[in-house]
Amino acid sequence: MSETATELSWQERVYRVLREHGVTQFPYVPDAGHRFLIEAATADPSVHAIPCTTEEEGVGIVAGAHLGGETGVLLMQSSGVGNTINFLSLIQHCSFPFLTLVTMRGDFGEQNPWQFAMGQAVEPTLNAMGLITLRADDPEQAVSTVEAALGMTQVGGRSVAVLFGQRLLGAKKF
């Protein structure tokens, strides 16, 4: 690994991996944990950074991107997972390959009690809608898990959610 590569943050490496795999549509609902990826996509003239009013739009956009021959990834916070559930019918019923990166709340070290209900329901609800969930709790895992998920979606044709845990992102103290 070159000197520069070792200096890249895990978020920069994740963005690089997504771009190397041809991801060109980045629908998102803002989240502090996704700040780097959102800024990187927004600054990149060769991709579409697409702020959404609600997360289910991102599911529609990723499916539409595939219909049009491109690849998208949905960036959202765990609270947004609940908003996507019925739209994930589209993914399952039509066998769309689908990738989402979810930044977790209501998880390791959470102190805001409003976050636990949805945070703890993320995996069971996504699994119930046919998605494979993969957790990443440290920087190395984050990069390798996104890489693995890209293979599972682009080659394997499945739908996968990568969950970035609060052990990785840091739990907010409020």
Partner: peptide, 13 residues
Amino acid sequence: GAAASLGLGVALA
């Protein structure tokens, strides 16, 4: 509720 967002993804692609 998905038609418009699906269309957006296709149009951008």
